[in-house]
């Protein structure tokens, strides 16, 4: 059976899709057969971030409705053989994702894949609850900012109560924290919540800290998951995240502001 990972946050715009793409690509690059599913019916974007938007023929809802089979809908990534994308549909109504239908698709995928990464839509409505219902692991993507931290905490409550594991009294979903858009300079100036602050409030297993980086926008502009950009801090931080998820014990990087020259040191930057 595949391990199901949901990428969630509650709040929108914090980097869920970027993270889902990075996680899926990272796992696939390490040789694991991986499929990444876009649960954001109506507002699909994962295909764009993955750079396969022009190859979408059938989608997740088509498969649930029996209008296409899985092999017709799955798009194989051109950069990595063991990675497949299941896009969301653009137009249909959100209720199209039935619990039964989603469960069936995940079960079928589970036979052929090692990891299933679910890119959740923002909010706590139907699509988001469907994305997390069957999960084994949850990566809660959080920005160091008040509304994002609060929404993440609300998400934790929902993960603990409205999942298959909770309903069947199984071992609860493993929850991980991923802090994104982190700016060490602003943290040093006392303008931004630090990793420790967020950890103190949410007390979750910290999977990674992704620094605020121009590379993320560049990567989505080009349709290349940022995890492939190993020159950038964000790319390296995402790679660390994947390795940590797989059990490697790596120190957190990019938590300190870059040291400046003697001039700006004296006068403050």
């Amino acid at each position: 059976m595949a391990r199901i990972i949901v990428i969630t946050s509650g709040k929108g715009g914090v980097g869920k899709t970027t993270t889902a793409a990075a996680m899926a690509m990272g796992l696939a690059q390490r040789g694991h057969r991986t499929v990444v599913i876009d649960f954001d019916v109506g507002l699909r974007n994962l295909d764009l971030i993955m750079g396969c938007e022009r190859r979408v023929v059938y989608d997740f809802v088509n498969v649930i409705n029996g209008e296409a089979n899985l092999n017709q809908a799955l798009i194989r990534d051109k950069r990595c053989d063991s990675l497949y994308v299941l896009p969301a549909s653009q137009t249909r109504d959100k209720e199209a994702l039935t619990q039964e239908g989603v469960g069936k698709v995940l079960e079928d995928l589970g036979k052929g894949y090692d990891y299933i990464v679910c890119d959740s839509p923002a909010g706590i409505e139907h699509g988001a609850t469907m994305a997390m219902y069957f999960a084994d692991d949850a990566v809660v993507v959080t920005n160091p900012e008040v509304s994002s931290v609060r929404d993440s905490d609300r998400m934790l409550g929902i993960l603990a109560s409205k999942s298959r594991r909770a309903e069947q009294n199984d071992e609860p979903i493993k929850e991980h924290l991923l802090l994104t858009r982190y700016s060490p300079e602003r943290v040093e100036r006392g303008e931004m919540l630090s990793v420790n602050d967020v950890q103190e409030i949410l007390s979750l297993n910290l999977l990674g800290v992704i620094p605020e980086s121009q590379a993320v926008l560049n990567a989505s502009n080009a349709g290349i998951p940022v995890v492939l950009d190993n020159e950038s801090n964000a790319g390296m931080a995402y790679n660390d995240m994947v390795s940590r998820y797989l059990g490697e014990d790596l120190p957190m990087r990019f938590l300190d502001a870059e040291r400046k020259g003697i001039f700006s040191r004296i006068f403050g930057g």
């Binding site: 900012e145 008040v146 931290v149 609060r150 905490d153 609300r154 409550g157 943290v187 100036r189 006392g190 303008e191 931004m192 919540l193 630090s194 602050d197 103190e200 409030i201 949410l202």
Partner: peptide, 17 residues
Amino acid sequence: GSASVAKERLQILVAHD
């Protein structure tokens, strides 16, 4: 800095939630 204010507010809010 405003971060300490943010942290304080969040701790209260999250405990309440």
